[in-house]
Design a protein around this nucleic acid. Sequence first.
DNA 1: TGACATTCGTTCGCTACCTTGCGATATTTG
DNA 2: CAAATATCGCAAGGTAGCGAACGAATGTCA
Lengths: 145, 145
Amino acid sequence: MQDEHLTVGAWTKRCYFAGRALMDATLRPYDLGSTQWYVLWHLANSGPTVQRDLGRALELERATLSGIIAALVRKGLVQQTSDGEDQRQRLLTLTSSGEALWRELPDLSFIHQAAFDGIAETDLATTIRVLRLATERLQTLSRKA
Amino acid sequence: MQDEHLTVGAWTKRCYFAGRALMDATLRPYDLGSTQWYVLWHLANSGPTVQRDLGRALELERATLSGIIAALVRKGLVQQTSDGEDQRQRLLTLTSSGEALWRELPDLSFIHQAAFDGIAETDLATTIRVLRLATERLQTLSRKA
DNA sequence: TGACATTCGTTCGCTACCTTGCGATATTTG
DNA sequence: CAAATATCGCAAGGTAGCGAACGAATGTCA
């Protein structure tokens, strides 16, 4: 795969992993993975959340989220209690040590800025439009087959 | 993450996973993962390859490729022999059953077509340009830090 | 030649994504 | 109400990615 004649698809993969790598590297000193960060971010900004809703918000399968939550519980950053209403649901809350960690985490917005700052708004809009259309088409095809 | 105000970064992730999901679903009946398919594709089109070169061609870490090759060897699709010249290197070859499987695999180009057909060339070019620039910037930042 | 460095592949441990299948709980419906 | 159905979270097993550390083979150079 030479740099020049890569397809759009190949570039989406490269770009995704490049951003992921930078995020992982930044979070490594704190022993956090990127998706774990998203969970903390959501709990810090939206407050206690039912696991099901969190899965929908972050677009993760139940099984995937289950493992991630288990890791955060093991580290003592998140508490998982059974909701009173529906006994199937689990309510997720930041522990005090989770809140403490969240406060000392660096701001990750520099990653998005480093990637896209200075690029023309119209080009960004085009990119989003193309990626969105492609994604929708692919998802439609997946659902059918 | 509501559909409308997603960032470019979020769309690259979505798009990447949507394509991957379709690829995985198509390959599932053949018990192949997407990266395993890329390995077979490379060996089928470029002939026997040294593992190191394959890793560079597919942009995979040695550790990652090692596991994938192990899976393919376990399935009897690929043969791993020590090269005569450099005793550190392993030469990868399709077995006859690997070749047979490759011949019966469906053409996957429909995925890229489904995603991007009919989109204006200029828009695709813009998308590639944006993603490439972003990727390069992120990789530069990763190397420094 | 001998000491040091590099390269190649593996293994280990981790994150993170999936599907399948299960049990427990809710909900809907006959 | 009872039975069928749906939902929620978990566990198991698979793929795919990473970094770190290691042995063996190879290169380098004083």
